[in-house]
Design a protein around this nucleic acid. Structure first.
Lengths: 202, 202
DNA sequence: GACAAGCACGAACGATCGTGCTATTTAATG
DNA sequence: CATTAAATAGCACGATCGTTCGTGCTTGTC
């Protein structure tokens, strides 16, 4: 759909709430009422935009990664696709932008967005688990913890990329990713036994 | 200023662009024109809000940390204050919210916000450097890299906290922070010599 | 008690918001 | 072709947007 395609550009740049019927109509060279007829409310339009963004995300980020051998290669493929996807949009990832926008706007949009974020985190978890099963990651790792740390890195890259746009951004992200993967790798540490590492006093 | 105080709550929840003259007037029980007279434009109001947020941030987050002994204690104090500050606002950190909002809205607001983010990253760098000088961190670390990784963690915590609000969020963040500090600590690794760790094929 | 200064106010402006109705055009189907 | 269904446009609505203007209250100074 051409309308949604155009809308996603606006969402990524200005936020989900800022995509107004009027501006989207102007961007698609349609009349307000003509465009409005496609959706029956602004809320519906927002959900449709998220749905479409989810399809693109699945097609460009998740599915290709599932075609790669499980383990670290698949993890790297997934986040590599994510970076490319985020860069392909003028204002970065739609879901990051929309999340900030709707974190405190209760309603169907927020609920839908939340379910999408949950399934993204679930995707990260699954891929970590498959890396364990493939023997690339240690067996004693916490996949939820891995998802949090990996997603944090992506969010860091995202902010740097969209706001600061330094030439070093990519290098910093890659270096951090390498260290993260090394830490979860099976041969990374010489067996830390079972003792946790949180008895520091600071 | 009571107006700015009220405004910051709206900013943190709905975003900097969504703070409208009308809604802020209603929230402060003033007339639109009466409130508008204090600032001379919406752009000015937005900058004033950021300025005020910066003062609070300095007072509650940065300055107290500078009173703590340099090194890991100071780093922990800084990020601890950040977490508390982010939690004290209904919608999380003003600058994270505003950054997403204004990353693609050129103008004075964006420029001012950008300078604030730069100085925050500079603060992280300085504190890392002071930790090196105090002997807590290794001497060969890249302070910019540390700032990126630490800020990424905070952003991860922020998204989890504002959107998902799982009970595990805090634990995941703390565990990741512990690992990050351990990695940069002087006694963390048994000397990794000078060889970088980026010759994987994946 | 006159006077100026600083606030806050109500009313109004043109523009845009989301959303309905009613035509008119376009495309598909007989 | 004629008919029908779908897509788009025109127009208008009440509300809100940022902004301007004129006016009335305080408050303190002379």
């Amino acid at each position: 759909m051409y309308i949604l395609e155009t809308g996603l550009d606006l969402v990524s740049r200005l936020g989900l709430e800022a995509v107004t019927i009027g501006t989207l109509a102007k961007a698609t060279r349609m009349s307000k009422s003509g465009l409005f007829a496609h959706f029956q409310s602004k809320e519906n339009l927002q959900i449709e935009l998220l749905k479409y963004a989810g399809e693109i995300f699945a097609k460009d980020v998740v599915v290709p990664a599932l075609g790669v051998a499980p383990g670290e290669p698949r993890v790297r493929a997934l986040v590599g696709n994510w970076i490319n996807y985020a860069r392909s949009l003028a204002g970065g990832c739609i879901f990051v932008t929309a999340s900030t926008d709707f974190k405190d706007r209760p309603g169907k949009v927020r609920e839908f967005l939340l379910s999408q974020q949950e399934s993204w985190l679930d995707c990260l978890r699954r891929i970590a688990r498959s890396a364990v099963e493939a023997g690339d990651f240690r067996g004693d790792i916490d996949c939820d913890q891995f998802a949090f740390e990996l997603y944090s890195l992506l969010l860091g890259f995202h902010l740097y990329h969209t706001l600061l746009d330094s030439a070093e951004t990519e290098n910093r992200y890659e270096a951090a990713l390498d260290k993260l993967l090394k830490e979860y790798r099976r041969t990374a540490t010489p067996e830390p036994s079972t003792r946790p590492e949180s008895e520091i006093l600071a």
